[in-house]
Design a protein around this nucleic acid. Structure first.
Lengths: 210, 210
DNA sequence: AATATTGTAGGGGAGATACCTGATATTTGC
DNA sequence: GCAAATATCAGGTATCTCCCCTACAATATT
């Protein structure tokens, strides 16, 4: 039985291409998502073996999506596929229990290998990033903790994408007042007190692209 | 005889995937490049019918690469494949004689169509961007790489730095209403309607740092 | 067991933003 | 030289932001 995979990437062309490539390798793409929220939904209904997630996606980023997916479909292993080879992204990924981390500049074989490895319970990291992990382990380097909770990060991302508080509430299916509370707490924690500052912070953190 | 294509994208995985997809459509991928400089080299030696170029690439970006390719292989048509759907990028592309402009969030069929169209001397633009071109033509607006006046750029920068309209007025020694007017016109020109969008634009344009 | 954090929700209010209309003087471009 | 763009200023309004406060249940943490 082929390994069942879902793909989440906000670029449809990339998704379609990956699908063709992965299916040629004998993997079964059972679902596609153009953002993290969609990915969580289809993971919940399809319970795939592996979820391949881009880190930077609109509405809900890959990291937070992975956390959600763990809850709604614990057997699903997560493999990140991303353009970011910087430590913080990798460490975030590991913290949410990633079974694979593949940088887009690398060969497609890496991704295939990561999916296969993840599906049988193993872990696969792109060469450079595994070097970073070893180094962090050796130095016992603590990762600078992101002060925001997952929900807050999600709200921040939506704000940075230009959503009003009302729209944020709509997307997340919560009351406007709750969205406002999140917003307030984000500003408090980051000590940033205007939208512009939040947007710049979100871009630095990679929650949204400039 | 199949259309001969070269692919340039700094993400190997994306390139490999696209290759598989395009070849399934009967196109012949005769070369690959991971940056603009490489793309120029292989265009020079292979003289493909079409060069598919990502706009953002290291070493030499897609726009400048296209210019070079025109010189070393005049018969090669250029199709841009990019994540950017903003006017300035499109304009740059058109200025260097692009025969196609496809946004990555769109379906792969668009890319295939663009390549086919370009190879037989036509032009193909993704729906949104062609809308922008038509609009610009109708309004006789210049699809300006920088549609803002110096003053507007200055105001935008202050906004992106987190200043309120009142503060902007203070810094520039103009009335709040004038600052407001500038803000309004900036939004009009850029077709961006929230602060968050303005900030992202300003960062992309390099007016402020994230 | 006690405390802190998170996610949820609400009341109320001052100020900012976004959009509408209008105007006038100056500079710029063809 | 005259039209277009630029920079200036103003009144009005609906909506949104940002801040103050409270509250409670579910987790985490200690």
């Amino acid at each position: 039985m082929p390994i069942q995979v879902i793909l989440a990437d906000d670029h449809q062309i990339v998704r379609q291409s990956l699908k063709v490539l992965l299916e040629r390798e004998g993997l079964k793409i059972v679902g596609e998502a153009s953002n993290g929220q969609e990915a969580v939904k289809i993971a919940e209904s399809l319970h795939p073996d592996v979820a391949v997630l881009d880190v930077s996606m609109s509405v809900l980023n890959g990291i937070d999506a992975a956390k959600e997916i763990q809850k709604v479909s614990p057997q699903t292993k997560t493999v990140f596929l991303t353009v970011h080879d910087e430590d913080p992204y990798l460490l975030d990924a590991l913290r949410v229990g990633a079974k694979g981390y593949v940088v887009k500049t690398h060969a497609a074989e890496n991704l295939v290998q990561a999916i296969r490895e993840a599906s049988r319970g193993g872990v696969y990291l792109s060469p450079e990033v595994s070097r970073a992990v070893v180094q962090a382990y050796q130095n016992k380097t603590e990762l600078s903790a992101e002060p925001l909770s997952p929900r807050e990060r999600q709200v921040l991302q939506l704000i940075a994408e230009g959503k009003t508080t009302k729209e944020v509430a709509g997307v997340l299916n919560i009351s406007v007042k709750t969205a406002e509370t999140h917003r307030t707490r984000i500003m408090e924690k980051l000590d940033i007190h205007e939208t512009a500052g939040l947007v710049r912070y979100a871009i630095r953190r990679g929650l949204v692209q400039a």
